[in-house]
Nucleic acid binder design. Structure first.
Length: 285
DNA sequence: GGTAGACCTGGACGC
DNA sequence: GCGTCCAGGTCTACC
């Protein structure tokens, strides 16, 4: 849940340590509900305030299973991580799962909003999209679900720039929304595809606004861990981990994690970075 | 296939 | 108060 920042992006709502999280969702029926997810013995519990049908219940269970990647087994990763002190805590903490949105459309939009900006801006832009274009939660109309592709597709680039302040990302988001809404782009099928990772990466990079970093981030979310989302943060971490703070490039990041093969992404994601420990004494935060 | 320059935004910083 | 820089990159034009 806390392994990356998604929990901070609406319509997720963090309920605090040991209290799980909430998510406002527009179901296939069009009904907008909020569900709470809490850890339970050997699993999670899901609860809603709203009255829902059996079909809606099944839909929510299916979505939460995807969001928490509950069907994934990480034993192979733990096996190779045990001998690496920097990863030894992963098994103890049951790490490996990375929170994701119910739809890949939402995760692609959010990933594009992480590029070339500060995290605070990513939160602000996501909040703006949700507030302006997401369907209201009937029980609390001030709160909203994530906007559908159809809703975003109906907006103009100027509106997305002016209202949501997406800047140059506005045409990327609009283009994606229109392709998904028209059926030209089927992102949901990519969740279960068996195509090789290299081909899936190429497919993701056909989306305007999705480059090497964004594609690798999305591949990790899709459970493909053989590419690294190398961004400025990764360069900084690797620099302080192995190069005494000297500037490094993508090649150095790739080199340091190459030995983890198909688990590269998870090794990177859950690495116990030296930078975190010494940041307060030697590195400006 | 590699590289330079432009791109929205808003907070931090220096003056 | 103002100008500059830059941040969890990507696209396009050009070579």
């Amino acid at each position: 849940m806390y392994s990356h920042g998604w929990i901070q992006l609406p319509p997720f709502k963090d309920e605090g340590a040991n209290a799980g999280f909430r998510y406002i969702d527009r179901l296939a029926s069009g009904k907008v509900v909020e569900y709470s997810i809490e850890e339970f013995i050997d699993g999670v519990t899901i609860s809603t305030v709203e009255q829902i049908t059996q079909a809606e219940k099944d839909e929510i269970v299916s979505k939460v299973t995807w969001m928490l990647n509950l069907e994934k087994n990480f034993l192979d990763f733990y096996e190779i991580a045990r001998d690496e002190p920097k990863l030894a805590r992963a098994e103890r903490r049951a790490q490996g799962r990375v929170l994701r949105s119910p739809t890949l459309f939402e995760d692609v939009v959010k990933t594009i909003l992480t590029t070339n900006t500060l995290w605070a801006q990513t939160i602000r832009m996501t909040q703006a999209l949700v507030n302006h274009y997401g369907d209201s939660l009937p029980a609390d109309p001030a709160r909203h679900a994530f906007p559908t592709a159809e809703r975003l597709a109906s907006e103009s680039e100027e509106t997305l720039r002016g209202e949501a302040r997406l800047g140059y990302r506005a045409p990327y988001i609009l283009n994606l929304a229109r392709e998904v809404a028209s059926g030209e782009q089927d992102l949901e099928i990519l969740k279960q595809t068996s195509m090789p990772t290299i081909d899936l990466r190429k497919r993701l990079m056909t989306i305007k606004g999705v480059g090497p970093y964004a594609a690798a981030n999305l591949l990790n979310l899709l459970g493909r861990y053989d590419y690294l989302p190398v961004d400025s943060w990764a360069l900084k971490m690797v620099s302080y981990e192995w190069y005494n703070g000297e500037p490094v490039g993508t090649a150095e990041v790739e080199k340091e994690f190459s030995r983890w093969g198909d688990w590269k992404g998870l090794a990177y994601w859950f690495w116990d970075w030296a930078y975190d420990h010494k940041s307060s004494e030697s590195v400006p935060s």
